[in-house]
Design a protein around this nucleic acid. Sequence first.
DNA 1: GCCTGTTTGTCAACACTGTTGACAAACAGA
DNA 2: TCTGTTTGTCAACAGTGTTGACAAACAGGC
Lengths: 217, 217
Amino acid sequence: MGRPASLSRGGIIAAAARLVREHGVEALTARRLGDALGCDPTALYRHFVTMGDLEREVGDRFLGAVDVRAHADDDWRKTVRRICVKLRRVQLRQPRLAALVSAAPTRLANEKRITEALLRELDRAGLSSEQVATGYHALIELTVGSAAIDAPLASLPAAERRRTYNEWRREYAGLSPAEAPASVAIADHLYLGSADSRFEAALDLLLDGISLQRRVH
Amino acid sequence: MGRPASLSRGGIIAAAARLVREHGVEALTARRLGDALGCDPTALYRHFVTMGDLEREVGDRFLGAVDVRAHADDDWRKTVRRICVKLRRVQLRQPRLAALVSAAPTRLANEKRITEALLRELDRAGLSSEQVATGYHALIELTVGSAAIDAPLASLPAAERRRTYNEWRREYAGLSPAEAPASVAIADHLYLGSADSRFEAALDLLLDGISLQRRVH
DNA sequence: GCCTGTTTGTCAACACTGTTGACAAACAGA
DNA sequence: TCTGTTTGTCAACAGTGTTGACAAACAGGC
């Protein structure tokens, strides 16, 4: 029944993912994807109602790289930490895809898989149902939110990124000591190291907070 | 010297802010702003090198609504909490503006003002310089990141937002208990209440973690 | 085998977006 | 008065997502 399909949903998603991987997320446009597939851009609308739909699907495909298995000797905290670090790393490669995935849960396979793993580990930590939900929300907001914020800078070459951080630090260091004493005093410690290390430090603080809620310490 | 300026940087920013306040951030385009100002869209490029520049300036203007004064009886934690809650509330109204402000610090007045206040309070809490910087990064990532994530949904009418949360909850509740036991068990507690309350709970967890680092308890 | 209906890709077009370069109006200073 | 600079206007370019009309190509019923 009907004209034979030369395109398929899966094939389009795969091509779109390749496009993003090789040329960045800003390359994911109807026309460029049409070129890559050798078809007219508007043919995509036969398989996805909107470009946003396609983006969500591509985003979830990338989430497939997040391994959620708990290692044998790891406790809940180590596992949660590893999942969040990996999740952020994956999301960092897709600027806006990051926001979409958690703002409007894609209800797609990999998103569910990661959610299940985080809830499982928090439950294993000995938290109440309410505390598990609160902890999950907090972890997702920090992890995905941090990725959304850091993504623009993460796409820059390392040298330029370093230069940018130095500029910020000097900016705060150069403020008037009378008007901004705390900024001047702390400036040397701001934006040191990598964005990854800053996130991991924040994650550790949050995990400390979550740990405090446990019935069994 | 030269043709008299009918437009000014400040006037343009004010008009842009009004546009965003009344019609949302997606209304902030060169052509619509030109219409509102009664001038040609390209005239804006005489005062801002790019539209992104203008957005940053508008974003910082909105940050002016964040009161950073410490109330007389409030300790550092209450003040930090109030600033972050207010900061998020303001950022929520500007979807992408939120990301910009902290991803590439605007080096503008209000952003510096808020940074100074947060550093001041964390210092007052009795943290080392490194801990102040770490805590500041963590607070900003959670607050601004959370705003960036929640912004799309926050712009929806309350009824539809509630409906969306209910859908998500049902989605997780309806999973296979064999494959996703934790999701099914916790589903009833996911996405309850408002996004604001979820953020505040996350913020409290983070503040718990920060408190643990203090020399003096 | 032929007609019909459905699917699916193509094409032209619409309504947008940011941005640039040429041009002219209007002033300040020499 | 002449010159130079500023500043707004205009046309245009290269993009973007998306829609509607059209045609090719098949499956099923007669």
